Computed example of a mutant assay.
Amino acid sequence: MDANHHVIDPREHVNEEPRNDLFDLMNGFFGMLTFMFVIFFGMVIVKFIAG
């Protein structure tokens, strides 16, 4: 039985990039909100043209 396993300690965070999580959250929230507003007003325009 081989006991020479290369165990990686998950506390090292070797692949983690330094990012601002709050800025990422706000960016995603306002990006999705903007996308939903575009879809909403696009559907309103389609309704008035078709109706």
Rank of each mutant, 00 (worst) to 15 (best):
F23G: 05
D24T: 03
H6G: 03
A3T: 13
G51M: 06
D9P: 05
V14E: 11
H6Q: 10
V46K: 04
R19K: 14
I39F: 10
R11V: 14
V38F: 08
D24N: 13
D21E: 14
N4I: 02
G31V: 03
A50S: 10
E16W: 03
F40W: 07
M1T: 03
I49D: 03
M26S: 08
I49E: 06
I39M: 12
M26Q: 06
V14K: 14
L33M: 12
I45K: 05
F41D: 01
G42V: 02
A3E: 09
E16V: 15
K47M: 10
D9L: 02
F41M: 09
N20M: 04
N4V: 02
F37D: 01
V7D: 12
E17G: 00
F30K: 02
E16K: 07
T34A: 14
A3F: 04
V14T: 13
M36Q: 07
D9M: 03
D9H: 10
N4G: 06
D9I: 00
L33Q: 11
K47I: 09
L22F: 15
P10T: 07
F29N: 02
I39N: 00
E12D: 15
F29V: 14
D21H: 12
P18R: 12
I45C: 09
D9V: 01
A3C: 06
D21M: 05
H5G: 04
V44K: 02
L22K: 11
N27Q: 08
G42Q: 06
R11I: 12
H6T: 12
L22I: 09
E12W: 02
N15D: 15
N27Y: 11
M32W: 04
M26T: 05
M32C: 04
M26Y: 05
F23A: 15
I49G: 01
L25Q: 00
M32N: 10
F48I: 14
N20R: 03
K47Q: 11
M43R: 07
D21A: 10
M43L: 15
M32S: 09
P18F: 02
F41L: 12
F35P: 01
P18Y: 01
V44G: 00
N20L: 09
E16N: 02
H13I: 00
D24K: 10
R19S: 11
E16R: 06
T34F: 10
F30T: 10
F30M: 07
M43A: 11
A50W: 06
M43C: 13
M36Y: 03
D2F: 03
I49R: 04
E12R: 11
V7E: 14
L22S: 09
G28E: 07
N20E: 09
I49K: 06
D2T: 03
E17N: 05
A3I: 05
I49F: 07
A50K: 04
A3W: 02
D24P: 00
F41C: 04
F29Y: 07
D2V: 03
V7Q: 10
M36S: 12
F48G: 04
D21V: 04
D21I: 01
D21K: 13
R19D: 05
F29M: 13
A3R: 08
M32I: 07
L25N: 00
L33F: 14
R19Q: 12
P18S: 11
L25S: 04
G51S: 11
F30V: 05
